[in-house]
């Protein structure tokens, strides 16, 4: 699926994994790569462009290293999507060491408008990677759908 530009420097993409979907975010900073990967997570379910960023949900999490923190960030989003029955299309991430403070903006799922394809069960550690690449950052993992 073509990756739309949602931020000046950032972009996201999907990559194939047997039965599931890889989500990958690129950014000028690590935080931006996390934000872009979150868009790829939404895009595994529905078109992010169709999701209005009307309501904000605060997300805080912690993990011992960048990679586990990235998986935790996606998993918190999966949790909020599932329990609030929402989709998110705008993300803000602030990283301080092993802690993440973020915000996800979106709206309740509207099946007629969003045509959601799959539920995401969780972010796995398969191909999990957070690293510097080409002067920027990449954050990726496979999500189980």
């Amino acid at each position: 699926m073509p990756a739309p530009e949602h931020a000046l420097n950032g972009r996201w993409e999907h990559y194939p994994h047997g039965a599931d979907i890889g989500v990958r975010g690129f950014g000028a900073t690590k935080a931006e790569a996390f934000e872009q990967a979150a868009l790829a997570l939404t895009a595994a379910v529905a078109d992010p462009a169709a999701v209005e960023p009307r309501e904000a949900v605060a997300i805080e999490c912690e993990a011992p290293d960048d990679e586990l923190l990235f998986a935790e960030w996606l998993n918190r989003l999966v949790y909020e999507m599932a329990t609030r029955r929402m989709l998110f299309s705008r993300f803000a991430v602030r990283l301080e060491g092993t802690r993440l403070a973020g915000e996800a903006r979106g709206e309740p799922v509207d099946s007629a408008r969003h045509h959601p394809a799959v539920e995401v069960k969780g972010a796995t550690y398969t191909t999990l990677r957070v690293a510097r690449e080409d002067g920027g950052w990449v954050a990726q993992t496979v999500v189980d759908v």
């Binding site: 998986a71 949790y79 069960k121 969780g122 796995t124 550690y125």
Partner: peptide
């Protein structure tokens, strides 16, 4: 089930070295 899988994957990944388990891959 999805949430239990998610939470224990993290707990087990963090605890593995404490149990002397060397994982060829975190997953």
């Amino acid at each position: 089930g999805h949430q239990i899988g998610t939470e224990y994957l993290k707990r087990m990944a963090i605890a593995a070295p404490q149990h002397g388990i060397r994982l060829p891959d975190r997953e």
